[in-house]
Design a protein around this nucleic acid. Sequence first.
DNA 1: ATGCGTCTGTTCGCTACCGTACACATGAAA
DNA 2: TTTCATGTGTACGGTAGCGAACAGACGCAT
Lengths: 263, 263
Amino acid sequence: MLSSLASENQNPRQNDILAALPLEDYQRLLPDLEFVSMPLGWALYEAGQKLTHAYFPTNSIVSLLYVMENGSSAEIAVTGYDGLVGIALFMGGNTTPSRAVVQSAGFGYRLKASALKREFQLGGKLQQLALSFTQALITQMAQTAVCNRHHTVDQQLCRWLLLSLDRLPTNHLKMTQELIANMLGVRREGVTEAAGKLQNEGIISYSRGLILVLDRPRLEKRVCECYAVVKKEFDRLLPQKHLHENTAAPNLRDKRLHMYLKD
Amino acid sequence: MLSSLASENQNPRQNDILAALPLEDYQRLLPDLEFVSMPLGWALYEAGQKLTHAYFPTNSIVSLLYVMENGSSAEIAVTGYDGLVGIALFMGGNTTPSRAVVQSAGFGYRLKASALKREFQLGGKLQQLALSFTQALITQMAQTAVCNRHHTVDQQLCRWLLLSLDRLPTNHLKMTQELIANMLGVRREGVTEAAGKLQNEGIISYSRGLILVLDRPRLEKRVCECYAVVKKEFDRLLPQKHLHENTAAPNLRDKRLHMYLKD
DNA sequence: ATGCGTCTGTTCGCTACCGTACACATGAAA
DNA sequence: TTTCATGTGTACGGTAGCGAACAGACGCAT
């Protein structure tokens, strides 16, 4: 069972960054790419800890989050098949003050720090992709800061659900309200209340750590502008992800066509 | 008067990035560096607008801020002599969804987009500096997001004052409460109240757009952890700024020696 | 099936911040 | 000197979210 799961997921080009590489560059990296299982809750790296690998998720989702001295936390960005985890490696710092935690279990590939740096230094397509992705990530962080300041928990929950959904092949999330609360940096009760409203309106269905999104368009109507800003910027900066459609999971591609803007 | 002001400020190496360049790289850029006055409120670029130049502030401060659909805004990062404005140029996007506004008037140098990109592509010191600076900026944004979520206006005001102070040669800021409120994304009255407390305790002195910081150590005792995290990360990622101390304004250098951590 | 841990729902007072409104102070311009 | 724009102080009800406490609901394990 696990082996079939693993084998059907064993294609590095399910990750957009890897998928957008020219064949030559891709094949140069291939020997260094290591398939890894990414279980829920696994910390790819801790705050201040030196990074050993960069991770390229395929069907998993990774949250970048800050944990404060008093224990409260907040997610600052989220990455999935559309990006990579470990930008500090090529940005020059080797560490960051944030943690990276698997938010949705799945698989991915990882690359040793040295291999990533080597390829980045060549100044080719990987460099360009990595930098573009980083800029998109910056937009996401900035928008998170603004969203934290000005928007309600209700709106932020919608944003969070949509951002997660965009990185999954299905319409269900395995995620307790407690965990969502940690991500959003709010109380668990606040999430319960916000999720309750969505449930009452038939937009989602919630049950013990499993969220089913029943009506995505209505979710998109409720979300604040932050979602669209981030989404647009990712699409603008990383259009390359469409280049190798044949090699990537089709169910992930479909999702891109979905209308996501208000009115 | 203006001419004397201008001439005493006309040294590109007052900017840390430019100061840290090897002589050869620096001289290659020099012909393309244009001295510019940066008056209060000037928008270096608007959201979504294509960047024409990168700016290297010397004694001015620039805020990166988001303006939302409903007009409310929030600062996501601040840059001065320690960095540059226009990272989207070398990150590959050419535009960002944020605005860059001069928060404290002064001077700086600017470089045409093409010249910056050319130098960046060489993969030399400028590339390394630009990327390190960008990572420090990312830390600042992330910390802003967290601070917006978890900390009080009082604490955020302290953080904001210290971050600004670090980028100025003096202990006074020319800045109305209204403007600070826009940066922090809170009401003007909230700033009045927070500033009033600081004033009552003799930490600052406030008068019609002019803030005098009388007791910086006490300010540092009141600030949340966010300030130290950002400061440490800038110092860690950009130690190069000390390399050319001889060529930079000494009053700016002194400030670095100031203790800035709690207890 | 019974018990127990995990997850979700609900309540209650509390506080920081909001929106609004207005009064006062300051300094520059007429 | 008076006027006026700009900046600052204060007050008041309203509310979103907090902290704490607890009740029920589900599903797994014994």
